[in-house]
Nucleic acid binder design. Sequence first.
DNA 1: CAAGTACGAGAGCGGTGCTCTCTTCAAGAG
DNA 2: CTCTTGAAGAGAGCACCGCTCTCGTACTTG
Lengths: 239, 239
Amino acid sequence: MGVIQGAKDRARAEVACAIKDQARRQLAAEGAARLSLRAVARELGMVSSALYRYFPSRDDLLTALIVDAYNALGATAEEAVERVGTADWMRAWSAVCRAVRRWALDHPHEYALIYGSPVPGYAAPQDTVAPASRVALVLLEVAQSAHEAGALAEPDVPGADCRSVLADDVRLLLREPGRTLPERAAPRLAAVWAQLFGLISFEVFGQYNAVIEDREALFEATVLVLAHQVGLRPTGPDA
Amino acid sequence: MGVIQGAKDRARAEVACAIKDQARRQLAAEGAARLSLRAVARELGMVSSALYRYFPSRDDLLTALIVDAYNALGATAEEAVERVGTADWMRAWSAVCRAVRRWALDHPHEYALIYGSPVPGYAAPQDTVAPASRVALVLLEVAQSAHEAGALAEPDVPGADCRSVLADDVRLLLREPGRTLPERAAPRLAAVWAQLFGLISFEVFGQYNAVIEDREALFEATVLVLAHQVGLRPTGPDA
DNA sequence: CAAGTACGAGAGCGGTGCTCTCTTCAAGAG
DNA sequence: CTCTTGAAGAGAGCACCGCTCTCGTACTTG
């Protein structure tokens, strides 16, 4: 087969896609816990055993959904930053955070799948790490552009920076061509990354019920604090 | 029956406790998804139907475990602050955060049960809200003691405070006798509360895999930033 | 002592993930 | 064009699950 895959492979990919779509629909309706292979097959007019030709187990189907969810969220974040550009880094920062929150609220079960309790096993399969890091990379890109403009401040809390916390993979990533962000800024960013999702998780998972009323206002305000924590300072008037 | 419950009630409570213990053991070993009523009953030498005399459904057993987990974590936080006192509020703040993180890392599946994806239904039962707020109340207590010492600073990020985000329940709580914390400090605290658990969740749920190596160092450093964000400033030399 | 009741056992229902076998059918090799 | 090979789906079946119902028993209570 050449660049154009044969009809058979195309059909196979289409069926796999239909299975994922139906599974995603059940996921959105009932949550990951109640997602059933048999129900998916039933809805698609197949018999349950046929489904195993495409996904070797329920966990593999879930993993595929996880990868898709990471990619959907990552694409959302990337689109947000593309739409506003990084010249005004404060605006870009807020736009990305807002887009991530919006996606999470619109897809609570998919969000729970990727940022809630890890459902299958305890170690995420290797093919989830790249999609999972897309949002973080977008945040890094915003910080990078601020740094290039010389507007990445040092933290104003003493002892907030710490050395040698980064894994080697990330250290290498930071040394890639085009990346000039100092290594000591990365831990701050990683912490803020986690804090951002903590904020969103509390809202999506209902921890703010009967505590916070106007969650959007709190989110918007806190996103500014997080930007400050990374070192971003209000964009100058020339932006 | 008087204050001392009859033998029958005592036996009933003991069996219910044994069921929860066994369930907790399976939870720790396999996770909430794989917790099975039949396996619990089998391990206890009963038949599965007998278990329904104590918990009307699997979800009810899970809810009981959730309440217990919230209480265990809450007690841990309370003990931490009792051990160091609130005179040195920075030390108290770090101690509480550290204790919560320690508990989470020691009980990952129980942590996932309460701060991961909500497993049963979407609305948490009413009897979980009080246990769930114990950690937040401890953090509030630390902030309160700093405020009494006149050491609760205003945020240094413009626009970080916002009005009318609090639910009425919390507003009432803040007006209880002995509570003098200004209402505008509460949203900051709520945001930091969520951010703290975001930090811990990323570590427990493996989001920091291949990203952050020395998670403890990053946590300790970030906890200081969070304290700063609440308004806590380093305790004076007279503490 | 008698009535009532809480408890455990057991069978059973419908559902699940997953495996195995069997048939069909279409693509590629000669 | 025939023949072979392999992939796809159907169906039965296994072990397990949550949950319900019934039935004997043992204990508490009036």
